[in-house]
Design a binder for these strands. Sequence first.
DNA 1: CTAGATGCAAACGTTTTGCAAATCT
DNA 2: AGATTTGCAAAACGTTTGCATCTAG
Lengths: 134, 134
Amino acid sequence: MDKKTEIKRNTQQRQLITECVQVLKHPTAEDVWQCVSKKLPNVNKTTIYRNLKRMVDEEELLSFVTGEGITHFDSTLDRHYHLYCKKCGGITDTHAELLDQLTKAVQDSEKFQIEEQNLILTGACPKCQNNDPK
Amino acid sequence: MDKKTEIKRNTQQRQLITECVQVLKHPTAEDVWQCVSKKLPNVNKTTIYRNLKRMVDEEELLSFVTGEGITHFDSTLDRHYHLYCKKCGGITDTHAELLDQLTKAVQDSEKFQIEEQNLILTGACPKCQNNDPK
DNA sequence: CTAGATGCAAACGTTTTGCAAATCT
DNA sequence: AGATTTGCAAAACGTTTGCATCTAG
């Protein structure tokens, strides 16, 4: 009764969107649009938005927002969090063990029932620390 | 050379904005506008946005974005993170010890130099768990 | 054949910008 | 007085919606 068993068509657009999210790793809607456009020059952004939204609703993708307020999509579904490099804009996944510990602790001490964890650590990735020795 | 030593005027609007952020705890720009409007009915939203932005730039306030993509402002500057209740929309501060541990671990293992931590745990606060026994 | 998906244009909400008028200091 | 800040209107931005057309099943 929770998940709708909706008919889903396998359109070219949808296939490409899925593909692009996987390849691009942590794209924005704009990124996906540009990527899909390469193979299908007339895709409309609306289609991108509609599909991404639906995929998030149906839990095929997850989305998160960086400190700058930009929404990114992620095809990695296991719980993890993100390292966001301010300099190059790169986003790296990190595993969730420590975050899980933290969440459990909060759950116990605050009696807060946690459903989603959204952690973004922002800073400078190893590459940018070296390349930009300011 | 980093922080600008700009002239800052003590306008009525700015005072009220500061006041409202403190009182409201984790307001959105809209919240602040409504709050300031009570005492100064003709404030323009632009003024709210401009001041909030500047305060964040000058590190008098910090801002964060919930999973829904809504920007909130916070006058508590010490490192801490937020519990966001999906049902009532309430936001609670939590202390940062565990998050600090996590951050240190990431810093060491990933060689990622972390400047900002942004953690939002979303779920149901104690009140809403009880009041809404679904 | 037909429900569901797309493309387009227009609406939307939030935030930003340009400029003249008002206001702190 | 003079520079900063405000208010207003308009633009910008990312996203959503309505609707006619197209298409996968």
